[in-house]
Design a protein around this nucleic acid. Structure first.
Lengths: 180, 180
DNA sequence: ACGTATTGCGCAATTA
DNA sequence: ATAATTGCGCAATACG
């Protein structure tokens, strides 16, 4: 998504009430040529295109499709109402976007917490089930033994089976209902 | 951390001097971490060596002074070297902070994914255990029946104790898996 | 040709 | 005094 790196030059202008038109110190000569605004990074800034070096023929180019060149309402588009309006709209959009971004991050964080909680619940449940299973298995084993005993030593009567009388497998443990 | 109270007035005002300096230069060298943009082309702005005239005549570099006098050193604080330096530092800090912030958000998102995965795993396990349990319980019931039959048919020996042995195994009722 | 949505950046006020 | 955060506006893009 979006890449681009932009360079930074500190140029800010102001806004609000006083708009100072300042001339630019002009970009270092060197830049002028190769600089421009490369898609990758360009320099931005240029407060005021005064001499309009760029902007090739406004329409004279022959049959080109989009002859850009029309940026002047007055002397500076900064003063333009349209400009101001656009800025304001953008500022609004920016604000909105950021708000959403923040919200999203927050939600994500919360999700983590929820998931974490659920995880714990699930793990507890697993533990419980495991235990239950273990008990049952033991019971089974015991039973098996008893049976074997019965077979081997019939004389012992059938009293042995009660041995594992402890029964209740899940003593109160089963009612694990989740909340949520 | 979040104090809020911000003034919304757009009274930013700038001074009339615009500097076109470029700072940067302090590119995180091995920034190979996570920043940067994935430029396909790589060509990235020429680092312009310039800047850092630093060395505020501190007079010897020892004690530092900052005289309690006015706050204007030379012409305007904006033009001050010191100012520029501070700005640069702050910009750097800001950049760093934002980077971290973004990174954190990203990490959080990933955490969500991981947790989600683990959750699924746990749930699967639960399902499995539940099934196993269910089977065992059924087996138990069957056994119980057999025993009962044995008891009743052979002629009432002392086997009775086993009667209530099986009792509530919770036949199938226990596997209350939550429906998420 | 347009408008909103994102994103990087610098500034300035706060906070720590 | 310094570094870290945070709200904000600007401008360049990315999307539609």
């Amino acid at each position: 998504m979006s890449r681009q790196t932009q360079q930074k030059i500190t140029t800010h202008q102001n806004r609000g009430s006083v708009r100072v038109i300042q001339d630019q110190a002009s970009v270092p000569a060197a830049a002028t040529t190769t600089l421009s605004d490369p898609p990758g990074g360009g320099l931005q800034q240029v407060p005021q295109p005064q001499l309009v070096p760029v902007t090739p023929a406004g329409g004279g180019g022959g049959g080109k499709a989009t002859p850009p060149s029309k940026m002047k309402k007055t002397s500076g588009d900064k003063d333009s109402d349209e400009y101001r309006q656009r800025r304001e709209r953008n500022n609004l959009a920016v604000k909105k976007s950021r708000m959403r971004s923040k919200q999203k991050a927050q939600d994500t964080q919360q999700r983590v917490n929820e998931l974490k909680e659920e995880n714990e619940r699930l793990e507890a449940k697993i533990k419980l089930l495991s235990k239950e299973l273990s008990v049952l298995k033991d019971l089974f084993l015991e039973h098996a033994h008893n049976l074997a005993d019965n077979v081997q030593a019939p004389g012992a009567e059938g009293a042995s089976p009660a041995h594992n009388n402890n029964n209740n497998i899940n003593n109160g443990a089963c009612n694990n209902n989740n909340g949520q």
